[in-house]
């Protein structure tokens, strides 16, 4: 079997790539996808640790993370739709004023 560290390395790489996506992309849809990627990276670390310590809690937590992610995506996409409807664009750099 493989050492825990391997999985953690993959998890870290994916997390950093996700963070980079959040920072350099202007399309909020892709920003969202990057956030999902980061969540996945964290989930991977959870499951790996759960396996390592032979406990179930890590998997349970991943289950809840998936549920929360689903909720977050639903609300986030709804927000994007609303923003698009008012601004006719979804570039986050255009949303720099406090007024709606």
């Amino acid at each position: 079997m493989l050492p825990l560290t391997y999985y953690l390395v993959i998890s870290a790489i994916l997390f950093v790539l996700g963070a980079l996506g959040v920072l350099i992309r202007r399309n909020p849809l892709i920003i969202f996808m990057s956030v999902e990627l980061m969540l996945n990276a964290a989930n991977l670390a959870f499951v790996a640790f759960a396996r390592s310590f032979d406990v179930l809690t890590g998997q349970i937590f991943v289950f809840f993370v998936i549920a929360v992610a689903a909720a977050e995506v639903a609300v986030g996409l709804a927000l994007i739709v609303v923003i698009f409807r008012t601004k006719h664009s979804i570039d986050v750099d255009l949303m720099s004023s406090l007024k709606g």
Partner: peptide
Amino acid sequence: IQMTTELAG
């Protein structure tokens, strides 16, 4: 950390 031990089970 240096957890190079293989995963059990």
